[in-house]
């Protein structure tokens, strides 16, 4: 019986990746739990938002898989609450594929957005990519990187702006680090998606655009007139040299 490659986790290399699956459809929960177990993941189930938040209080998990259409507290609300609490990786798993739903989900703080129907193998690949970029000390960049008034310390996953720490999610951190490492050269959207999210090829770059928007809100004086994270029209992004 083949097993998926062991997933890196924050809880220690030995333990299997633990996922919190927030999904109101019992059959989907059951099928995904079995299939994700085949991929080497341990699944904690929650049928609605309240029980999800309650479960998180007692059980440490590595990644939250979040449905948007939930009874009671909606998925977006749960996502915002979790993001307000910290950096816990969130992947939205939704039947809604409309542009505004995707944007709303990412704006609420999700790291990734996948649409049903999907298979566990795809989900596991996304989880692996997400955890890879979230594992501290695995960026391979040891030195401190500077971009304008930002000081990026990859080892500690810390960004200082004018000496004061800026609170970034690790996806935002990943994007910023990729751009800063390029030292003012243009990084294409495809390259960013590949390096940060680990996608081979994604035609849909909304994911990136929303994260850049969120990043700008945290590191720019005026997010509508960015000086640090610059858009290169029709190509990608780069770091402004002067800051």
């Amino acid at each position: 019986m083949g097993r998926g490659p062991a997933l890196n986790t924050d809880r220690g290399a030995e333990a299997p990746t633990r996922l919190l699956l927030v999904e109101d459809d019992a059959r989907i929960r059951q099928a995904l739990r079995m299939a994700l177990a085949d991929e080497g993941c341990e699944v904690v189930e929650a049928p609605d938002g309240e029980s999800a938040l309650a479960a998180l209080a007692g059980t440490p998990v590595d990644v939250v898989l979040l449905d948007l259409m939930l009874p009671g507290v909606g998925g977006l609300e749960v996502c915002r609450t979790l993001r307000a609490r910290g950096n816990l990786p969130i992947i939205i798993v939704s039947a809604r594929a409309d542009h505004r739903d995707v944007i709303a989900g990412l704006e609420a703080g999700a790291d990734d957005y996948v649409t049903k129907p999907l298979v566990a193998a795809v989900l596991a690949a996304r989880i692996r990519a997400l955890l890879r970029r979230r594992a501290p000390g695995t960026t391979g960049v040891a030195t401190v990187v500077r971009a304008g008034d930002l000081e990026i310390r990859p080892d500690e996953q810390v960004v200082l702006r004018g000496g004061r720490p800026v609170h970034l999610t690790r996806t935002e951190f990943g994007v910023l680090l990729e751009l800063a490492s390029a030292g003012g050269r243009v990084v294409t959207r495809e390259a960013l998606l590949r390096r940060v999210w680990g996608y081979d090829y994604v035609a849909d770059t909304r994911l990136l655009d929303v994260h850049v928007r969120r990043l700008r809100r945290k590191v720019e004086d005026d997010p509508d007139d960015p000086r640090c994270v610059l858009t290169v029209r029709g190509s990608g992004y780069k770091i402004g040299q002067t800051g």
Binding site: R27, I28, A31, T115, K116, P117
Partner: peptide, 23 residues
């Protein structure tokens, strides 16, 4: 089609579980 997404997710993942055990 929207309504079909949920049962399809179940079916696809159940099929994947079976596929792993085809031996």
């Amino acid at each position: 089609s929207h309504e079909l997404r949920s049962p399809l997710t179940t079916m696809a993942n159940a099929a994947a579980v079976l596929e792993r055990r085809r031996d």
